[in-house]
Design a protein around this nucleic acid. Structure first.
Length: 316
DNA sequence: CGATTTTGACCAGCGC
DNA sequence: GCGCTGGTCAAAATCG
């Protein structure tokens, strides 16, 4: 799970239903003040009843909205806490140790057991320490989920390409070296294996394969995180595209990976570059698909739409 | 000539 | 134990 969240205001949904956008998170809905203004003054009991019903609904929605906002804050805090623990652990492991692991011929496959062994050898105490602060104390399930969290990050990106172009080259700004190619059982298209060659010790790998269903679609799977700055800061001609989707450990989360510190100074430039129409089309489809599956989002959307309806109603 | 790609061989996990 | 499969290695070929 890689929930990237900027400043609070960035989460506001600029939902445009009807004449203008609604900021559902930070501003009280316009209809709220309309009800109490002189413009709307119910004259009979029926209207008064309707008003009170609507006001009750409004209050309830605002409460739900508040609860959801609090939950979001809570999840964000939990995420940041967990992330800092993982960062601590990553920083604590010495580079020589990593290199030894890298060079070890017996470590051809990194399995769940390998992960546990690695922790036993290098950070079992810190692992316990990390759990000591958890309340309630961690169960076996909690331990498993923790291991899931610290697993090398696996992200997938789906790209629309020209079906006539048979190359498996994906320009994401990083420097990759191909080290293998294989035809897999469930897909006639070969899968290419790449390793990040920008930094010798960078553990990131990626797999590139055309979709079995649609040859024009390339599926890129990234494993791990780069331990160096983005090459685009040095090589300005390289395109900066870092939009990860469908994180394997979290389901349908869309992640706009703009967290790489070296990327921030070039944020505006990168934003201009990702205005590539093809990219945007794919991204919008994926975002729409993921967002509609998210119950929190649909609730927020329903809230916003109902708010706009109330506003229109009050204007009549 | 160094870097990168290609490609067959090899290895390890997994299911039977 | 055996075969299947995905992932990796490494020598040869290719490229700039």
């Amino acid at each position: 799970m890689d929930l990237v969240r900027g400043p609070r205001s960035s989460l506001n949904l600029e939902l445009s239903v009807g004449p203008g956008p609604i900021d559902v998170m930070s501003h009280p809905p316009p209809y709220q003040s309309e009800f109490h203004s002189n413009r709307y003054s119910p004259t009979n009991d029926k209207e008064r009843n309707q008003t009170s019903v609507l006001e009750a609904k409004l209050t309830k929605m605002n409460e739900e909205n508040k609860i959801l906002s609090e939950q979001l804050d809570m999840y964000y805090e939990k995420y940041m806490t967990l992330k800092s623990k993982i960062d601590d652990r990553t920083n604590c492991s010495s580079p020589t140790e990593d290199q030894q692991n890298e060079a070890s011929p017996s470590k051809k496959r990194r399995t769940k057991n390998d992960l546990i062994i690695k922790f036993n050898n290098t950070g079992a105490e810190r692992l316990d320490e990390a759990f000591q602060n958890e309340s309630p104390p961690p169960s076996q399930e909690g331990f498993k989920s923790y291991l899931e969290e610290i697993k090398p990050k696996v992200t997938k990106i789906v790209m629309q390409t020209d079906p006539a172009d048979s190359s498996l080259v994906v320009k994401d700004g990083y420097q990759w070296r191909k080290y293998g190619q294989k035809v897999t059982r469930d897909n006639p298209s070969p899968r290419a294996y790449f390793r990040c060659s920008f930094a010798p010790s960078c553990p990131v790998k990626k797999k590139v394969q055309r979709s079995a269903e649609d040859k024009s679609v390339i599926v890129v799977t990234y494993e791990g995180e780069h331990n160096h700055s983005h090459p685009s800061t040095c090589l300005s001609e390289n395109r900066v595209l870092s939009c990860y989707t469908a994180n394997s450990t979290s389901g349908s989360t869309i992640t706009l990976d703009l967290t790489q510190h070296c990327l921030k100074p070039n944020m505006e430039k990168a934003c201009h570059e990702i205005q590539n129409q093809e990219f945007q089309t794919v991204l919008v489809k994926q975002m729409a698909s993921s967002l509609t599956k998210d119950p929190d989002f649909t609730a927020a959307l329903a809230n916003a739409i109902s708010g706009k309806i109330f506003e229109n109603f009050s204007d009549v």
